[in-house]
């Protein structure tokens, strides 16, 4: 059902965990819907220096969470904001149609974390 790349990210997810004293936190989803994600980010000079996630959800939710952290790490905040759910799914070699909604979590979570950072650090 899942591509080999999706399964590889599910088996060995990158950047799992929580950053202590994070500069921004994004939380999306809801346990009632069966999936939820928390992303914490560390920002330095407008660049995503570190990023970690925790995800409750299916294989697709875990894999897209893992992939979005890989894609965003080291990027400028504006560039990271431009990562779409579609782009994450494509980077994973596609997802089964019934699973596309699971991929929405990942980029949404990242954007929520960046917005949180920006709200905290308004000049």
């Amino acid at each position: 059902m899942y591509s080999e790349l999706v399964m590889e990210h599910f088996r060995n997810p990158r950047n799992i965990g929580v950053i202590e004293n994070a500069d921004g936190v994004g939380e999306v989803g809801n346990p009632q819907c069966g999936d939820m994600m928390r992303i914490t980010i560390k920002v330095k000079d407008d660049i995503l220096e570190d990023i970690k996630f925790q995800t409750l959800g299916c294989g697709a939710a875990v894999a897209t969470s893992s992939m979005v952290t890989e894609m965003a790490k080291g990027k400028k905040l504006d560039e990271a904001m431009d990562i779409t759910n579609q782009a994450v799914a494509e980077a994973l070699g596609g997802l089964p149609p019934a699973k596309m909604h699971c991929s929405n979590l990942a980029a949404d979570g990242l954007q929520a974390a960046i917005k949180d950072y920006r709200a905290r650090h308004k000049a």
Binding site: F10, L56, G57, C58, G59, V62
Partner: peptide, 24 residues
């Protein structure tokens, strides 16, 4: 604290076939 499909997939890696009541 866990979602069902992820358990099913992990158990499958150990050769165990079970099912889940999760939406996924």
């Amino acid at each position: 604290g866990i979602e069902g499909e992820s358990m099913v997939l992990m158990l499958d890696m150990e050769g165990i076939c079970v099912s889940s009541g999760s939406a996924c």
